[in-house]
Computed example of a mutant assay.
Amino acid sequence: MPLRTLERTDVDSDTLIVFLHGLGLDAEDYLPYLRESHQRCVAVTLYGFDRGSTQDLEPATFEQHAEYLSALLAELQREHPAARLVLVGFSLGADMIIRLADYWSHHAGEPARIASAVLLDPNINHSTMTISRVLANANPDDPLADLKRIATLPASMASFQAIITYLGKILGKDMRHLHRLSTDAVNYWQPDGYELFGKRLATVKHFADHIRVLLSDDYQPHLNALQDFQDERLSFAIIPGSDHFDLIDIENLTQALDHPMPAPGPDTRACDPRLTASVTERTHELPQLTRAVMRY
């Protein structure tokens, strides 16, 4: 069962940062950060979200994605046993960290031990799931009308530009996988209120020493309620002036991960123009898992 990653492991660092992308995106959203980072980094592309054809892959459930990621993290920790593990998730990737904690709390085996979890604009209830709700109700065989609806959502020119860029990225993906994962994600959260979100963050604390929840400006109306869950191991903060997709800009990722980037070096690109000599693409062949979904 393959999962593709982009990896920066040629640096002398005691930290391993694992990045999880948003709905319909992939590891390449973190490529600018990986190129400049002085930490060991692995950006994961979720099962079924590679660019190009995935027609031979049956869409995975939310729980199956958690199972696959759990196996990948176990592999990475075997490869880097002394590394301090940091998990970073954006949007649905942040939800995936929460779902991983649920998975570990209900299944036997050794969970990953996370030094720090950084959640960038996680969903808290249906009020923050505008795009997910549209994709969950879309016809994956004919999604044009719903994709057009997403394009009408922004209230500013900057947000419109970000949404158009996002739509351009997901158009290259198999819509069946987006539909299944968005449907499961919507069903995972309650329509309103914050109690379930707080309860699930408490589960994450069983596996992570520290949790930072960093939010775009759109979350300002929720901040007071969310800060009721704050303690010495869990913090919330708004990134001032930020749009949702701004949170994965290299500047905001650097701020989120609390370390300065090194000065840019010479451009040493490999044959693939997306990659530098220090960022490698890798396919992890995970063992066949109990709820695997590949067709035979």
Rank of each mutant, 00 (worst) to 15 (best):
P143W: 11
A256P: 02
I124F: 08
A74V: 03
S105L: 14
I170E: 09
S116C: 13
E285M: 04
D258W: 09
L171N: 15
L92D: 09
R84L: 10
H177C: 08
I239W: 09
A237H: 07
A162H: 13
L69Y: 05
Y194E: 04
Q255R: 14
T268Q: 12
R282Y: 01
D50T: 01
S70F: 07
L181H: 00
G198A: 06
R176E: 09
L69A: 04
A277I: 01
H126C: 10
A256V: 02
T203E: 05
P260A: 14
H126D: 10
I170L: 11
H80T: 08
L275T: 01
P32W: 08
D249M: 09
E251D: 09
G48Y: 00
A27E: 03
D231F: 03
L196V: 06
M261C: 05
T61P: 00
T165H: 14
L46T: 00
D12G: 02
D142L: 14
E79M: 15
P81E: 08
L20H: 06
P2W: 05
H38A: 05
R8L: 05
V18M: 04
D246K: 09
R133T: 11
D184R: 06
Q77C: 11
D142F: 13
T183Y: 04
G265D: 08
Y166E: 10
